[in-house]
C-alpha cells in the first residue's frame, strides 16, 4: 500500500488554531500542497495577515513574515523586490484585504507586482468575534450589524476579484470556493496557476476563495458549506476574472 494522501511536507505538524470545521485549514493545506508539488518549499516566503490566520507563520515550514493589518501586499512587495527569484505570497482575510488593506491590494495589482495573494472571503471578521466585513451580504446579521447589513447604513459588499481584474497589472484573477471536494480541487488548481504565473514573472495574481466561518455564522460546519453555495455564490460568482497567463503576462 502506498500513501496517496498525507500532510504536505511544507505544512507544519502543528495544531492549526482555526475553529472546528473552519475551511481556512483546508486552504492552508492547499497552499502547502502546491508549494510541495512545485518543489518550492526552500524558496517560498509567505506573508500572513492580522486575522484568523495571523499565526500562520506556525503552520508552514517555509520562511514567513507576519504583516500589520492590511499591509501584507506591501510587505510582500518589499520581500519580492529583495528576492525576485523567490515565491512570495500573502494569505489574507476579507477584513485584512478588502477593508483596511484595500489600497495595498489595488496598488500591488496596479504595479503588476509579481506576487500572489490568497484572499479568503468568509464575509465576516472571525478573529475578533464576528463583525461585519466589507464582503458581508445584505441583511447578514453580524455583531456590528445586529439587525442585518442594510444598504442605507452599510452599503454593498465589495467584489474584489471583479475590481482587481480591471487593473492592467493584474495577470491572473480567479474566484473559487472550498465548499465541496470538487471545488477544493479547483481551488488548488487556481493556487497552482497563480504561483506559476508569479514564478514565470508574468505579474500580479489573486485567488479569492469563498470560505466558511461556522463559529461566527452560528452554524454547524456542514451547514456553513451550504451557506457558501446558497447565499455567497449568487453574490460572489465563481470563475476566472482575468487570465493573461497564456498571452505572456502583463509585465
Amino acid at each position: 500500500m502506498e500513501k496517496i494522501f498525507e500532510r504536505p511536507h511544507s505544512l507544519s505538524d502543528f495544531v492549526l488554531s482555526y475553529c472546528p470545521g473552519c475551511t481556512h485549514g483546508v486552504i492552508n493545506r492547499l497552499v502547502a500542497e502546491v508549494v510541495d508539488e512545485m518543489g518550492l518549499e526552500g524558496s517560498t516566503i509567505g506573508v500572513c495577515p492580522v486575522g484568523c490566520s495571523v499565526t500562520a507563520y506556525n503552520f508552514f515550514e517555509f520562511d514567513m513574515q507576519e504583516a500589520a493589518h492590511g499591509r501584507a501586499p506591501a510587505v510582500a512587495t518589499g520581500i519580492k523586490r529583495v528576492h525576485p527569484d523567490k515565491l512570495v505570497f500573502t494569505y489574507q482575510g476579507d477584513g485584512d484585504l478588502a477593508a483596511i488593506g484595500t489600497a495595498e491590494t489595488i496598488h500591488s495589482a496596479a504595479r503588476a507586482e509579481n506576487i500572489s495573494i490568497i484572499f479568503v472571503n468568509n464575509t465576516i471578521y472571525g478573529m475578533t468575534g464576528g463583525q461585519m466585513a466589507p464582503t458581508s451580504l445584505i441583511d447578514q446579521v453580524t455583531q456590528t450589524t445586529p439587525f442585518g447589513r442594510k444598504v442605507e447604513n452599510q452599503g454593498y459588499p465589495i467584489h474584489v476579484s471583479e475590481m482587481v481584474s480591471t487593473l492592467k497589472g493584474a495577470c491572473y484573477v480567479e474566484r473559487v470556493s472550498v465548499d465541496s471536494v470538487p471545488n477544493i480541487r479547483k481551488t488548488k488548481a487556481a493556487i497552482r496557476k497563480a504561483f506559476e504565473c508569479q514564478m514565470a514573472g508574468k505579474g500580479f495574481s489573486l485567488v479569492e476563495v469563498l470560505s466558511s466561518c461556522p463559529t461566527n455564522w452560528g452554524m454547524s460546519p456542514v451547514e456553513a458549506l451550504e451557506r457558501i453555495r446558497t447565499e455567497m455564490m449568487p453574490e460572489f460568482p465563481l470563475g476566472v476574472y482575468k487570465d493573461c497567463t497564456e498571452t505572456g503576462g502583463v509585465r
Binding site: 500500500m1 494522501f5 505544512l11 492549526l16 485549514g25 483546508v26 493545506r29 477544493i184
Partner: peptide, 17 residues
C-alpha cells in the same frame, strides 16, 4: 477516493491504497 481527507480542515486523515 480521499474525499474525507480532502475536505478535512486539520489534515488528520491519511489514505493508503
Amino acid at each position: 477516493c480521499a474525499f474525507c481527507a480532502t475536505i478535512c480542515p486539520d489534515c488528520v486523515i491519511t489514505i493508503e491504497k
